[in-house]
Amino acid sequence: MSGPAHAKGEWETYWKETARLAGQSETDSSSIWEVEAAQASAKDIARFQSFMRPELPLVDLGCGSGIQTRYLAQHFQRAIGVDVSQSAIELAAQSNPHPGLQYRVLDVFDTQAVQAFQAEHGDVNIYMRTLLHLIRPEARARFAASIGMLLGRRGVLYLYELGAAAGEYFHAWIQRNGMPVSLQRVLQMGIQPGTVTREHVLAMFSPERFTIVADGESPSAPIPVRVMSPSPTPVLAPEAWAPPGYFMVLQPREP
């Protein structure tokens, strides 16, 4: 990612700090996206695996610490975790290794890097969980173009996103429980989570170029978060954070 619509620097700062805090038991260093694979990827796989060509690599786009990537690697012959942050990739390789799994830095807004990745790996399947809402609106068309390039003609895209009602959900949750430490860390880095409606997704991946082969609405996997408290040790929130979401499985149309 590059230019004014890009948060590459913010992501590098966020994951560098996350890696620094890792292992400090007195500090809540977890990422807000650090959802156990049994609560996330395991449910996702049932929705998309049958549509994907098993001979193609599966790319976990925006892999972060690699907790989902490691699980996906147990179900696909080739899995590649990619992230725009070098610190995230280093943390993932250290924390979540798996035989046959590799991690790579990839900036999807760098056209030459995307072309080189596609030339190296060919068409790929893509797994993308709660990433679109972090892409700034003015950058979404460029983002979708890169996704299309990576998929090629045979790849399949699975995405899971926050639902339209997620904003109200977050506001009500924080009113009841306080600001989660993990969310506060994100905001302090200048990263602004948002929502992407189904209409936005369909505008990015238009019916002229993509076919929806499966979709539906579902509550997100519960995320264990910690609320702000005056004590040195954060306190577990009294309820799980599970904002509403939806999923889609899309494949390119034949030219």
Rank of each mutant, 00 (worst) to 15 (best):
V196K: 15
G122L: 02
Q112K: 11
Q184D: 15
T111R: 14
R136P: 02
L159G: 01
V201R: 00
H121S: 02
Q118Y: 03
Q115G: 06
A166I: 00
Q188A: 14
G178V: 03
L132M: 12
T197D: 15
Y158R: 05
A113Q: 12
G148Q: 01
L202F: 04
G178D: 08
G148Y: 01
V124W: 01
V181W: 03
A116D: 15
I147H: 04
S146Q: 04
L157M: 02
F109T: 12
R185W: 12
Y160I: 13
T195G: 10
A141K: 15
R176F: 12
H121N: 05
F170N: 06
Y160W: 09
R176T: 04
T130G: 11
V108F: 07
R140Y: 13
I126Y: 00
Q115I: 09
I126Q: 05
R129F: 10
G122S: 07
L187Y: 10
T195I: 14
A164F: 07
I126N: 12
A141G: 02
L157F: 10
V196S: 15
L132A: 15
R129P: 00
H200T: 14
R198I: 07
G152H: 05
W173T: 08
G122P: 06
F205L: 00
E138K: 09
M204E: 07
L202N: 13
M128E: 11
F170E: 11
E138H: 07
R176L: 07
Q188Y: 02
H200C: 08
Q118I: 00
Y160A: 10
R176N: 07
L162H: 07
N125R: 12
V114R: 03
M179T: 09
V105Y: 00
A165W: 04
A139Y: 06
V105K: 14
R154V: 13
G190Y: 11
D123A: 11
I126S: 06
E199K: 06
D123Y: 05
G122D: 09
M189L: 11
F117E: 05
F205P: 05
P180Y: 04
P137E: 08
L159C: 06
M128F: 03
Q118T: 03
W173D: 04
I126R: 03
T111A: 10
F109V: 12
Q118G: 14
Y169G: 02
G155T: 03
A203V: 05
Q115T: 13
V114L: 00
Q118V: 08
R176D: 13
F205S: 04
F117Q: 13
G155P: 02
H171A: 10
D123W: 00
S146A: 15
Y160K: 09
A141Q: 13
L131K: 02
I135G: 02
E199Y: 03
H200P: 11
V105I: 11
